[in-house]
């Protein structure tokens, strides 16, 4: 097997809170190969954002801590890495784009300075060279009149434009992996499509791998090669995108796919959109068995006794279910 770019093994990221230990990520395995786009989906609170931030070690410790597992970046475990070593990987090799473009840029510096900061740190450019590169990056992400706008402050940009700036900043050092943490959730629907298109375009240009975190199944179907479905801090299903949509095995995945709104069907058949009943269980004291059992309509006695193992049902298609 080829060495994966990123190989997360049995990762556990826990948070100490007033009410007890929250096992936000509780034994996650996730592989991303070179130039591959992997979607990570699940409801809010399922641990996908914590997983993404764990990779860059952006978790506040305390209250968070790594309770176990490995994050292998090109074969090298990031968890024991010193801060200085980690900083050489951040943005240079793994970059991240966050959900909230409105608050992710520092309001007191120009966008040019904020992009230049990365370049000056990792490529040792002078301020002038770095600003020139920033202009190029802004042009690349289709910001009109980049020479002027490089000197503007974030509040002079719209949300969509700020997300373009964030992408320009993330890609400025040509990272090998881009983590996109719900990059379109906070944007208008029309802007969402533009940003996704831009990411595709950038991928074609730079050839980096993308870890796309989202709860929109539609976005996954359009952009990803492989999908990982998370539920309550665990991976419940993993499959190539065609396999997942063609033959979803886990009841939770099936529910997710059924909950995609389909304009055509809704208009013709007046079908009600299907929602998954119930909410995500508490991660403080997770139920002993399958964490989805309480909401699962196929649940049997065995489901509540032990966590089912991840088993391979066809090539590259894994599912954590007894069915």
């Amino acid at each position: 097997m080829v060495e994966a770019l990123l190989d997360i093994r049995d990762l556990k990221t826990w948070f100490a809170t007033e009410d007890g230990l929250v096992r936000a990520v509780d034994g996650v395995d996730l592989r991303i190969n070179r130039s591959e786009t992997v979607g990570v989906v699940g409801e809010s609170g399922c641990g996908k954002t914590v997983t993404a931030r764990s990779v860059l070690k952006l978790i506040d410790m305390p209250p968070g801590r790594f309770a176990g597992g490995q994050i292998l970046w090109q074969g090298r475990d990031l968890i024991p890495l010193q801060a200085a070593e980690m900083d050489k990987i951040r943005s240079k090799e793994i970059a991240i784009v966050f959900q909230e473009p409105m608050t992710s840029l520092n309001p007191v510096y120009t966008v040019g300075d904020q992009i230049a900061e990365v370049l000056r740190e990792h490529e040792k450019l002078t301020r002038r060279q770095a600003i020139e590169r920033a202009v190029e990056m802004l042009a690349l992400v289709n910001i009109p009149n980049p020479k002027m706008r490089v000197h503007d402050y974030p509040h002079q940009f719209s949300g969509g434009m700020r997300q373009r700036v964030m992408i320009a900043m993330a890609l400025s050092c040509r990272p090998k992996l881009l983590i996109a943490d719900e990059p379109t959730t906070a944007l208008d629907v029309t802007i969402q499509a533009q940003i996704l298109e831009l990411m595709q375009e950038m991928k074609e240009k730079f050839g980096m791998a993308i870890m796309l975190i989202t709860h929109a199944m539609g976005v996954v179907a359009e952009t990803c090669q492989r999908v990982v479905v998370m539920y309550a801090g665990k991976v419940v299903e993993e499959a190539p995108v065609e396999a997942l949509f063609g033959d979803p095995r886990h009841p939770y995945t099936q529910g997710l796919i059924r909950s995609i709104p389909r304009v055509d069907r809704a208009a013709v058949h007046k079908e009600r959109l299907e929602a998954i009943p119930g909410t995500v269980p508490s991660l403080l004291t997770p139920p002993p068995g399958c964490r989805f059992a309480q909401r699962c309509r196929f649940a049997k006695d065995v489901c509540t006794q032990a966590i089912p193992p991840l088993k391979e049902v066809s090539a590259g298609h894994f599912v954590r279910c007894v069915l």
């Binding site: 931030r53 860059l56 952006l58 801060a83 200085a84 980690m86 900083d87 050489k88 990987i89 951040r90 943005s91 240079k92 970059a95 991240i96 966050f98 909230e100 608050t103 992710s104 840029l105 520092n106 309001p107 900061e117 990365v118 740190e121 990792h122 964030m166 900043m169």
Partner: peptide
Amino acid sequence: LDYVTTARSKGIGE
């Protein structure tokens, strides 16, 4: 605030 996390993700050192 979010932009501090952004800054941290840049690898510029604490």
